[in-house]
């Protein structure tokens, strides 16, 4: 009877609070577990580079291309794909 009573008591006064605490902890940390590590300025960066809207395809190696005769009257220009002058802005945090 005593053993039965103490088991029941342990279940009510220890088991249930532990279960409630575990559920609350899971709810609190579920978001960060799902979204993975968060960026924290000043700490090291862990992720590989991401390029959104980057180059469509890798450009062919010019050394492997067959040599074509230049069109007559074509003015000499800088190679396509090279920006002439650039503008913009910089910032740090």
């Amino acid at each position: 009877m005593i053993a039965e009573l103490s088991g029941h008591t342990v279940l009510v006064f220890v088991g249930i609070p532990v279960l409630v605490a575990a559920v609350l902890a899971l709810l609190v940390f579920a978001g960060s577990i799902a979204s993975g590590p968060r960026y924290r300025p000043g700490l090291s960066w862990w992720a590989p580079p991401v390029w959104i809207n980057g180059p469509v395809a890798t450009k062919p190696d010019p050394a492997n291309l067959p040599e074509l005769p230049a069109a007559p009257g074509t003015p000499a220009t800088a190679g396509a794909g090279v920006a002439r002058t650039t503008g913009g802005a910089s910032a740090s945090w």
């Binding site: 920006a83 910089s90 740090s92």
Partner: peptide, 11 residues
């Protein structure tokens, strides 16, 4: 990591 931002605009 370097906490740098660059915006580059073409010609």
């Amino acid at each position: 990591a370097g906490r740098r931002l660059e915006i580059v605009t073409g010609a």
